[in-house]
């Protein structure tokens, strides 16, 4: 269980997320973090992952994460940033082996390459294993970035827009995989998404952030209302269910 209270993060003196509390996130749950550009979603994830200095409290199964040295925190948490760097002369499998071997406190991994390859196969990109990272397409890179986070077998999975560059099939595949792994390994997963229908479909819970403040928190049905969309996104939109019962968000016009 991840319990967040009085949690605040920022850059230097600039506070992006003022003290913030969230009902506990249970194991085996997928939480979608949504909100407009610049809302502070990435900042919140960076704070939880320990990349930015945070204050307050974030307790994972009773262990306080705030103030825990990075190397111990990295033991529990995997974080997938929004971007991958350019011009890296490494093959996909090498990046996974590197991710496994570089972590300072992790147990020695007997066969990092085998572990990496199995994961690649599970994601469905085993054929990319020996390709150079800088010769992949944007979406392929994103899948590799996801693999780099997953391969470390964390307890908390923080994903920043993992599907933004993927085609429809892989968007579905990746989110289903995240769901599967979350259930299977009892992970606590937080995913930043922009596609609200996708968030509603794959997440148990939606947390809406705007201007660094919590706007709504609950099941997709509770949270996604035309009123909220107007308030948070400045959008006049309908929330409807398709013939299969899945929530669809249909934007009509930007409110001035």
């Amino acid at each position: 269980m991840l319990a967040i209270s009085e949690f605040s993060v920022g850059y230097g003196r600039k506070l992006v997320i003022p003290p913030f509390a969230l009902a506990p996130l249970p194991r085996g749950s997928v939480t979608a973090l949504v909100g407009p550009n610049g809302a502070g979603k990435s900042t919140l994830l960076r704070g939880l992952a320990g990349l930015l200095k945070a204050r307050g409290s974030a307790r994972l199964d009773g262990v306080e994460l705030v103030g825990l040295p990075l190397e111990f925190r990295a033991h529990h948490i995997a974080y997938m940033p929004q971007s991958l760097p350019h011009g890296v002369a490494l093959t996909v499998i090498e990046t996974l082996v590197g991710a496994l071997r570089a972590s300072p406190t992790d147990q020695p991994v007997p066969d990092a390459a085998a572990q990496g390859l199995q994961l690649l196969q599970r994601i469905g990109i085993a054929d990319l294993a020996l390709r150079r990272l800088d010769q992949l397409s944007g979406g392929q890179k994103q899948m590799v970035g996801l693999a780099q986070a997953l391969v470390r077998r964390p307890r908390v999975l923080l994903l920043d827009e993992p599907t933004s560059a993927l085609d429809l099939r892989f968007q579905l595949a990746v989110m289903e995989l995240v769901r599967e792994l979350t259930t299977e390994c009892g992970l606590i997963t937080v995913v930043v998404l922009h596609d609200l229908a996708q968030a509603a479909r794959h997440a148990d819970r939606l947390v809406v952030l705007a201007g660094g403040l919590l706007q709504a928190d609950g099941t997709p049905e509770e949270v996604l209302t035309p009123d909220l969309l107007a308030r948070v996104y400045g959008l006049s939109a309908r929330v409807e269910r398709c013939s299969r019962g899945q929530i669809q968000v249909l934007p009509d016009a930007a409110l001035s």
């Binding site: 940033p81 590197g98 972590s103």
Partner: peptide, 20 residues
């Protein structure tokens, strides 16, 4: 060597691996 390799994946990622 391993840490330097991981650093090539970007500073944020390296930090998230627990590399100082």
């Amino acid at each position: 060597a391993w840490k330097l390799t991981a650093l090539r994946l970007g500073e944020e990622r390296a930090l998230s691996f627990g590399i100082d």
